[in-house]
């Protein structure tokens, strides 16, 4: 136990620096800088609302932009974190070959810095919600549950993908395709009540842990049209949590087993 604390103490500063680097460099050299964390989701929200609002018949729903934005923010975090983690070992090959640093710090720092950017961008969601007249209720306190779950899920998946990514570079491209599929099964710009409760499609939402997080998140910020239960779904919360922990355990074991061989493959 003492060695774990020593370890954390020793590498906390490095992790800090790596996270800071990710945040600092993402928007460096763009004129608007960090403002893009807020602007980008806002603009995407407008595009998605303009296209899918009328197309799918949600024009009358004045909270549809909030619905779209909340889904997209969570999905975007998951997508960026896992995508960048898949490449994390390869991108840092020069460093890994030259100095000893615990290798899990690379995917971990990628997930963390994307998480920080994601948390900052929640400001947009707050502002848009208030402007459109969606005010927080006491349910908002539950928001930390999906926020933790989506982090666990992203970290676990990232650990798995970063390991596979070392040995099979194809994973980067395969995962991009998979992410497109995941995006369409997360009900970001359409609502799940389009499908009847008995339809098999419902099972896609029930089993998709990322959708579970998004649904919990929407319920917590007070959107009424979440999954057909129309309230915070504790089954989803528990399922996502267990799923997330499971991916972390699997990813962690896999990563630990393979990490000494990374250096021979990059």
């Amino acid at each position: 136990m003492g060695s774990i604390i020593d370890h954390v103490k020793k590498y906390r500063f490095l992790l800090n620096e790596l996270v800071k680097k990710g945040i600092k460099l993402r928007y460096r050299r763009s004129y608007l800088g960090v403002l893009w964390t807020l602007l980008e989701p806002l603009l995407t929200m407008i595009v998605l609302t303009i296209i899918f609002g009328p197309l799918l018949g949600y024009s009358d729903d004045k909270l549809f932009p909030v619905y779209v934005l909340s889904g997209r923010l969570l999905y975007n975090f998951f997508s960026l974190a896992t995508k960048e983690s898949t490449r994390s070992i390869r991108v840092n090959a020069a460093m890994i070959k030259k100095v000893y640093v615990p290798k899990y710090l690379y995917p971990l720092s990628y997930v963390l810095y994307n998480y920080v950017i994601f948390l900052i961008s929640l400001i947009v969601l707050a502002v848009v919600s208030l402007i459109l007249g969606l005010f927080p209720t006491v349910k908002l306190l539950l928001i930390f549950i999906p926020l933790i779950n989506v982090f666990l899920l992203s970290l676990g998946v990232s650990l798995i993908l970063s390991t596979i990514g070392v040995f099979f570079r194809d994973m980067e491209y395969l995962w991009n395709v998979a992410l497109t599929l995941i995006m369409y099964t997360c009900a970001i710009f359409y609502k799940t009540d389009r499908f009847s409760d008995t339809s098999w499609i419902i099972w896609i939402f029930k089993l998709n842990p990322l959708y579970g997080c998004i649904d919990n998140f929407r319920a917590a910020i007070g959107l009424a049209d979440t999954f057909y239960t129309h309230c915070f779904n504790w089954n989803f919360a528990l399922y996502c949590f267990v799923f997330g922990i499971l991916t972390i355990v699997i990813g962690g074991l896999l990563f630990r087993k393979c990490q000494d061989r990374f250096i021979l493959h990059i």
Partner: peptide
């Protein structure tokens, strides 16, 4: 050995 491993060129 290999001084500067870990440098970031944009930094």
């Amino acid at each position: 050995i290999e001084l500067g491993a870990g440098f970031d060129m944009q930094y």
